[in-house]
């Protein structure tokens, strides 16, 4: 097994060296890759937090979290477009975006709440495979419900006029939207971290993650805490949805699958259940995915390396789960023996 891991590593290094020697991209290109990767990474981080929070508290993978993200992003469109049409997006961009965010986050929260109540709560003590299959079913169901509601076509978010174009930061041109995404995401992540560390609810969440029974004995309402965890994760996903729309513009009913999976990869990378880990993992994956194909796949003379961008993320997921399921920052999850 280590042989394969070693081979992959050698391959990456060799490809990178080749690329650097051949230098097909300019400095501006590389900076573009990095900033884009950072922005994407922030999105992954926000969504990853949802996975990690739920896993920490329930020890289950909320496979449908990608759809929670989609629900927010997709529904937000129906608010964003009218706001653009009546000019509020241009005149009061902050207010407009705030309204869109509230709607998006609200939708995500509702979906996550229903998920927990209907699908996951009855199965808290079921054998491992059962909630997982339920989550897969829920993911499918949500995708096609929203496809039924809003149609299967792609909807394009309107541009925010004041966010078109670039800003000059330290002599480099960066897309305004990317900056906004990075800043907003950082703010949200910081808020979340502070919330979990210092508020009573946050402490309750951590207590229930550690030991459900003992937390209950100490008077913590476990059900309520679990609901709150889902809600917070969903709010972050909904916000990520709006930010995603700012960056990528297009929303569609199956948009949740890949970001969801990549966000999950990020969560595992950083150590599932570990909140700073999810953030680090997300940003790392975003950067790696953006810079990677150009950096080492080019070096191997692979045509159109960008097609394999997603394959890189999946490969990383697979490798991490095989070799280091505890992630970069995580703790080993004990295997119960006898």
């Amino acid at each position: 097994m280590w042989v394969i891991g070693g081979l992959v590593l050698v391959g990456v290094v060799w490809g990178s060296v080749n690329t650097i020697l051949n230098n097909p991209y300019s400095r501006a290109n590389w900076i573009d890759f990095v900033v884009f990767g950072l922005a994407q990474g922030c999105l992954y981080a926000l969504i990853a937090l949802g996975y990690t929070l739920v896993y920490g508290i329930l020890r289950m993978i909320n496979f449908a979290h990608g759809e929670v993200f989609m629900a927010g992003a997709f529904t937000g469109y129906f608010v964003a477009q009218p706001l653009y049409d009546n000019g509020l997006m241009a005149s009061q961009p902050i207010l407009a975006l705030l309204i869109v965010s509230v709607v998006a986050m609200g939708t995500s929260i509702i979906v996550a709440y229903l998920l927990e109540r209907i699908c996951y709560r009855p199965l808290r003590n079921a054998p491992r495979l059962v909630p997982l299959i339920t989550a897969i079913g829920a993911s499918l169901f949500l995708q096609y419900t929203f496809a039924g509601f809003y149609g299967t076509g792609v909807k394009t978010y309107p541009n925010v006029p004041s966010l078109e174009g670039e800003w000059e930061i330290a002599g480099i041109g960066v897309l305004k939207t990317q900056v906004v995404v990075i800043v907003a995401a950082t703010v949200l992540m910081t808020l979340l971290y502070l919330f979990v560390q210092y508020t009573k609810i946050g402490k309750a969440m951590r207590a229930v993650s550690e030991d459900k029974e003992t937390a209950a004995l100490m008077g913590i309402n476990v059900d309520q805490t679990i609901v709150r965890t889902f809600v917070i994760g969903a709010a972050l996903a909904g916000a990520a949805g709006v930010l995603y729309a700012l960056l990528n513009k297009q929303v569609q009913f199956y948009m949740g699958f890949q970001p969801g999976l990549k966000a999950f990869t990020s969560a595992v990378l950083g150590g599932i259940g570990n909140i700073p880990g999810a953030m680090v993992g997300g940003i790392f994956l975003g950067l790696f995915e953006s810079v990677g194909p150009s950096l080492f796949l080019e070096g191997w003379q692979i045509p159109a390396p960008y097609q394999l961008k997603d394959a890189i993320a999946f490969t990383m997921l697979v490798l991490i789960l095989i070799f280091r399921p505890t992630g970069i920052l995580g703790e080993r999850l004990a295997k119960k023996k006898a």
């Binding site: 045509p303 997603d310 999946f314």
Partner: peptide, 23 residues
């Protein structure tokens, strides 16, 4: 359990993406 499922999902997707690629 769940990790096994995700890994197999990853494998399946990687193979599909490879089949799809120009490479």
């Amino acid at each position: 359990g769940d990790y096994l499922t995700i890994v197999t999902l990853g494998f399946g997707e990687i193979i599909r993406l490879l089949a799809l690629s120009d490479w």
